[in-house]
Design a protein around this nucleic acid. Structure first.
Lengths: 196, 196
DNA sequence: GTCTATAATTTGATAGAC
DNA sequence: GTCTATCAAATTATAGAC
């Protein structure tokens, strides 16, 4: 079934583009990667590639969205929320292309409301912050999290640490992003006596 | 003295360019501001403006450097380091052009070693981190800072929170950057019982 | 010190054929 | 679904005159 017209092929090609683009970004840098580079790498012309994505930025956003889906679907064997966040961040270090893309796009879209990724990021910050906030409230009721912290503020802070460490990591890959995130979660935990 | 050739005038014009550029960025957004826009605003042609700066990115970096100088020279009536950092961050909210510039350039330069601002940022992260680290060591000796924290890690984290909150603030200006930074410093202080 | 004029790309996007 | 051809185009950067 579905022999020609080949609906499935289109989907597969789209997927291929997404992962090849990601590799290219990781290899030659986000800003040095043009839509034409990606097209060449998947054996298409630039115009051919734009058949799959409306614009360059739409392509980048599609990659970010796919990452979100994977992250949400993944089983992060994490005992608690702090560990989960650290696990995600730790995983990011394995995908430098995504980090580059995230850092650059979130900055570009932040200062331009017309940017194709603006809404994506605004909504992403809002939704992850509110999801984390809810988790933190529960943890406070369970006595696992310090009661004197504002849950929403803490959520913001953790997102900020994670974003900020990505930048520092890009300048100096020897810095351990996950470890720094864990430092903050440790401080936020109840009876945080800290184990080194 | 110095009537013609007018050395002083060149300096003044340069200063004028720097501050007009900053205003433009704050008004119309970093990515929407071209070198020609700045030239128009100061009554120069684009080529005329490039007499003062070697390239567009050099102009941006010059603005950032000037900010650093001012910040370092300023008297931030701050009792301790935590308050100082918060004061700087709080001040940033008054200069949206600088925040936009910082966020965009630090991201762009992070993923491109050839970027004119790459070295500036790498060195800036390194030097501020090490200065903060030294401060924290002293504070630990004085018993003002929790002894179980790695001073350098804490320094990284605070820079990260500050950078990360700038991004969130650009997406949602109602979030208070300084307050979030203070949350972390509070947690790091010795006997952090927190006052709301 | 400032301008005119122009180069030099690069790169993203569209129209229409196959 | 993919290509050819072409546009749009915006900038940045440079050479050389005044």
């Amino acid at each position: 079934m579905a022999r020609r017209g080949s609906y499935a092929k289109g989907i597969a090609k789209r997927e291929e583009i997404l992962s090849v683009a990601l590799d290219l970004v990781a290899t030659q840098g986000f800003r040095r990667t043009s839509i034409k580079d990606v097209a060449d790498a998947v054996g298409l012309t630039q115009a051919g590639l734009l058949h799959y994505f409306d614009s360059k930025d739409e392509l980048w956003v599609a990659i970010l969205r796919r990452r979100d889906e994977h992250d949400n679907a993944a089983q992060w064997d994490a005992p608690d929320f702090a560990a989960l966040l650290a696990a995600v961040v730790r995983h990011n270090a394995e995908v430098p292309g995504l980090v580059q893309m995230f850092v650059n796009l979130s900055a570009a879209a932040a200062t331009d409301p017309e940017h194709p990724a603006h809404d994506y990021f605004r909504e992403r910050y809002e939704s992850t912050r509110s999801r984390m906030t809810a988790d933190f409230r529960t943890m406070q009721q369970d006595g696992r999290l310090r009661a004197d912290l504002d849950p929403e503020e803490l959520a913001s802070v953790l997102l900020a640490v994670s974003d900020g460490m990505q930048i520092q990591w890009l300048y100096d890959p020897s810095r351990d992003m996950a470890e720094h995130v864990e430092l903050v979660t440790r401080l936020a935990m109840a009876q945080a006596t800290t184990a080194s």
